[in-house]
């Protein structure tokens, strides 16, 4: 697996250590620690996992095992404008997959990836509670309803600088 080799600043390492300490450096709190660290960091790159493993006195392989098990955790940074396509039942039957495919084609990235300029990232999610508007797409906090694959280009264009 290739990952962007990132280098942590001392204060970032200190923040991760503080989060671990808040959970008493307890191996059993790994998921909570990962959750907090991802909120702080945006994602969980290898270097961050190494710090967590060291603080919780467990193997990096085990931390990586948990990070890769849960779809909530990500090792890739989200874009400045994270795009989420709802794949819940209602959205799915009204063509969400076509919309998702169009985003993939248009942005030339897969689900879970970011564009090379770091602007957009793409993910799928399950139900945002707006089934009446299906299919639903979210860009950051903004919700788009009744999206068709033809709308994709227009939505992306809204975020041109």
């Amino acid at each position: 697996m290739s990952h962007v080799k990132i280098v942590l600043k001392t204060e970032q390492v200190d923040e991760i250590k503080a989060i671990c300490k808040a959970f008493h450096n307890d191996e059993g709190e790994l998921i909570n620690v990962l959750h907090k660290v991802q909120t702080f960091f945006g994602y969980l790159p290898a270097e961050v996992q190494e710090v967590i493993a060291h603080e919780l006195r467990m193997s990096v392989a085990k931390v990586f095992g948990v990070v890769t098990f849960y779809s909530f955790f990500t090792m890739k940074p989200k874009g400045r404008f994270p795009i989420s396509v709802c794949m819940g039942t209602a959205c799915y039957v009204r063509g969400a997959e076509k919309v998702l495919d169009e985003f993939k084609r248009h942005l030339k990235i897969k689900v879970g990836e970011s564009t090379p300029d770091g602007k957009f990232s793409l993910s799928s999610l399950r139900c945002v509670g707006a089934c009446g508007l299906a299919p639903v797409v979210m860009v950051g906090e903004k919700v788009y309803g009744r999206v068709s694959s033809e709308d994709v280009k227009k939505i992306v264009a809204e975020y041109n600088d």
Binding site: M1, H3, A46, Q49, A53, M58, S59, V60, A61, K62, V63, F64, G65, T68, F69, Y70, S71
Partner: peptide, 25 residues
């Protein structure tokens, strides 16, 4: 992990994708 406490191997990923591998595969 438990006996040797080496920690080289762990199950990673989920479902059909899951394998026993190393940190960061």
């Amino acid at each position: 992990n438990e006996f040797q406490t080496v920690g080289a191997l762990s199950a990673i990923n989920r479902g059909f994708e899951s394998v026993v591998s190393t940190a960061f595969d």
